[in-house]
Design a protein around this nucleic acid. Sequence first.
DNA 1: ATAATATATGCATAAATAGGTATATAGTGA
DNA 2: TCACTATATACCTATTTATGCATATATTAT
Lengths: 107, 107
Amino acid sequence: MKSELYQMQAEVCKAIAHPTRIEILQLLRDGERCVCEIFPAMKIEQPNVSRHLSVLKKAGILSSRKDGLKVIYMVNDQRIYEVLDLVTDMLKGQLDSRQSALKSVVG
Amino acid sequence: MKSELYQMQAEVCKAIAHPTRIEILQLLRDGERCVCEIFPAMKIEQPNVSRHLSVLKKAGILSSRKDGLKVIYMVNDQRIYEVLDLVTDMLKGQLDSRQSALKSVVG
DNA sequence: ATAATATATGCATAAATAGGTATATAGTGA
DNA sequence: TCACTATATACCTATTTATGCATATATTAT
């Protein structure tokens, strides 16, 4: 049934639907990082980062492995960045059409 | 500041992070539709559809125009379908890697 | 064994989201 | 004006989500 797919798509989207989690993904853009590198790079508490990381992991977007005391997180599928970049492009497009709408009125 | 962008990206993602709203977008895939066509096609109450439509509209994903009594909704930017299709592909990829992981164990 | 470090989890709470039912609003036609 | 249709909104409630603070767990080093 299609509704199963919609449910799964919604879960992936929900996982990335938070500014903190998007920022985490950007930090992981050029390679894996441990929690101890991630949370000082953002002004946010460590337990909070851990929970956001686990949301992304549960959605299948991240994986983790242990390296001594550290836990290192990495992106499973680079296409998540295509998704985020597409959304950015759409937002730019919204600005552009507002701008042309404005121009056609104000001149 | 980047955090403004993350916030805006998150809002778009949140808007599509619901199975009902994804289904609505699929119904609009091949053209605009009025509410009276949308809600009978899904087993859901009319006020509920109206609310989901307004979420998508507020996020800039849909627009609407009136045609007599009817309100007709349409997609602003077809790239929203590229986003949804990418997510579907990622989900397929998750299945594939689970399958090969399983094969490497079970044979 | 003990201490120290890195990470995750429990608990409490505030805020956001979703859906049902009823009702309001807007447009149309008699 | 009045009734009718299509859509949106209000209100209530249940559920989910987010976060701070405290604490638990796991690993390493002394």
